[in-house]
Design a protein around this nucleic acid. Sequence first.
DNA 1: TCGGTAAGCTGACGGCATGACAGGACAAGT
DNA 2: ACTTGTCCTGTCATGCCGTCAGCTTACCGA
Lengths: 215, 215
Amino acid sequence: MTGQVRTVDGRVAGRRGQATRQKLLDCLSEMLSSSPYRDVKVIDVARKAGTSPATFYQYFPDVEGAVLEIAEQMAAEGAELTGLVAGRSWVGKAGWQTAQELVDGFLEFWRRNDAILRVVDLGAAEGDKRFYKLRMKILNSVNNSLSDAVAELQSKGKVDKDVNPAAVAGALVAMLAAVASHQKGFQTWGVKQAELKPNLALLVHLGITGKKPTK
Amino acid sequence: MTGQVRTVDGRVAGRRGQATRQKLLDCLSEMLSSSPYRDVKVIDVARKAGTSPATFYQYFPDVEGAVLEIAEQMAAEGAELTGLVAGRSWVGKAGWQTAQELVDGFLEFWRRNDAILRVVDLGAAEGDKRFYKLRMKILNSVNNSLSDAVAELQSKGKVDKDVNPAAVAGALVAMLAAVASHQKGFQTWGVKQAELKPNLALLVHLGITGKKPTK
DNA sequence: TCGGTAAGCTGACGGCATGACAGGACAAGT
DNA sequence: ACTTGTCCTGTCATGCCGTCAGCTTACCGA
């Protein structure tokens, strides 16, 4: 499916080549979490990987290209998020649990990949279509599931007609992503992570169902 | 209050100096909205301002320093956000209007300053304390007001005891900021801005009061 | 075993941004 | 005109970028 991995000048990468390529990606990934995106230099990545800058350019057009590659891998892995919402109930106690598990899983996923997600978010916000699509790819599963949930409740008359399912779902997902990005921020604000989660779950539940959860 | 404007080497800037300084800031600001943060170079800013790179370094230690300066100006200006929530009612129809006006004002503010706010957000997410504090400074007024509103409703028994006002307020503010950053994203998602606003207002109202608004 | 071929890597280079400095230009007061 | 302090820029050493030619290594078929 991925086709063949190719170098910039068109050669097909073999075992060894793919290993170096992956090593470069790993090192870049590590650098992104330890220093500002703006300051990540090709030469540093290459040094860290024990190779030369020229090698880097053999596999990636530039730093951004490599970042996209990492993000792509993560997006595939991010399919796990689907399981957090697909086919879950939003009614009664089950609904409260769905909300809690969604918040939990989402925050955990974001924490695990925060460095790369920051860059994707920035790229998307700056209007870069590639990052943009990638962000959608990652969030789409959750977003669609939530949107469906709202639409279903709406068809049963449990949610007001004038609610736009896609808008509400999108806003809630954006909230989760933003809070996850600034988790540390809440801490110095005097809100501990353990306290944060149930409150987020509450907001999600309120947003989807329009009602307070039954706990 | 701002004290005196000083150059990097300690001289006090006079009329002319301050003018060039401001021109550099303006040009930087403009560049930030037209090209990715990562690609903004001192030499480009200087060229655009019709001066030399050396001049830039006379007033700012680096690009980041100048960005902080712009953000600081914006933060002061952002005090206007306070008026959107301070002393407003969250009950009945007035509550619904408060929510709507908050969303409206917030989105507008973000739209006006999106380029610089993106950078501040990134810096904060990357853990830079200076950007971090700045972000708090900008959002604090709204955040505190919302937090107070929840706490007040709570003391009247209108909101559950186990709700953490600061957490809810912070999450809602984060949501507004995130949605504002990705407004274009919602459009390609099939959600128009006009539809987005009332849904956001609904979420805000639900979050603060725990109830659907009376329209 | 032995080339042949393609993959893999690097040294080296021109080009450009950075950041520092010293000195020249300029305005204002005397 | 002269002095003083502000303001700007030419220039330079340094370091990263991105590319190329060319060397080394691995694989493969005869």
